[in-house]
Design a protein around this nucleic acid. Structure first.
Lengths: 149, 149
DNA sequence: CAATAATTGCAAGGTAGCGAACGAATGTCA
DNA sequence: TGACATTCGTTCGCTACCTTGCAATTATTG
């Protein structure tokens, strides 16, 4: 969030937010013709590349709360892109699979790697590493403080 | 979003998201006893420090869409923390002011600067500057691409 | 001055995120 | 074995973000 109107004086926190939303917006804009949200795309991407997955594992991989993922999955099931079967030994778990329609749609989707390339292409490797380090340590410190409550 | 379950191999993009949400979560947790969301806090903060403000200017300062801000303001008005008067020369504009209750609540709120300190305190100044530079240039490139459509 | 364009805010509808609470299934241990 | 705890998914209620479309107001321009 911006303390100042002038973009020169924004904090790390403010740029973190802006950057996140800019990337998200570009993803959303690219996927809009296909009626897909960014997180829905991540689910399809994972299923297309890793095959059927237990919902719990997918949640961990994509770092989503169970409640959040639940809603996204039900949207994808409603669109008939993903099938949710309760197969398996553990009757609590749900197995997620791409439907035929899901596979067909996935093949039609454009490659989104240009977004990451646009954002971080050509930037010094060392600077990227520094950025990851700063963001990661900040994230871990914040999460530690959260757990303390 | 995470390609890998292993936090060692996440991309810049994934850490940007994680870091944003970690800070957001800590803000939300701190403000929950006061029934305030993070963005609502930013609005009160701005009004408390800058006095009455036209809604349009506040939107620009906080980098929020008109529709988004509209909902947030109506929540704050419903809680009687902010008054929205259509005073002024331009009859389309709304002037936002803290109510007495809003001022009283603001004085009771805890200082949130510990969040930024937790996240980025003690980190090398040069690394912080690098991080800002990387995030800022990524954001600008993404926004340029967005405008092109 | 009248027609057109731009601006401001609102409402509706959709996506995504969270916490809390719940039922069903499974684990644990006295 | 039986009581208790944990895990998994869902639902509910909430914040916050976006787009589209609308109405009112103001600015511009022929």
């Amino acid at each position: 969030m911006g303390d100042q109107a002038n973009p020169e004086h924004l904090s790390v926190a403010a740029w973190t937010k802006r950057c996140y939303f800019a990337g998200r917006a570009l993803m959303d804009a690219t996927l809009r013709p296909y009626d897909l949200g960014a997180t829905q795309w991540y689910v399809l991407w994972h299923l297309a590349n890793n095959g059927p997955t237990v919902q719990r594992d997918l949640g961990r991989t994509l770092d989503l709360e169970r409640a959040t993922l639940s809603g996204i999955i039900s949207t994808l099931v409603r669109k008939d892109l993903v099938a949710q079967t309760s197969s398996g030994d553990d009757q609590r778990q749900r197995l997620l699979t791409l439907t035929a329609a899901g596979e067909a749609l996935w093949r039609k989707l454009p490659d989104l790697s240009f977004i990451h390339d646009t954002a971080f292409g050509g930037i010094d490797e060392a600077d990227l590493a520094t950025t990851i380090h700063v963001l990661r340590s900040a994230t871990e410190r914040l999460q530690n403080l959260l757990r303390k409550d």
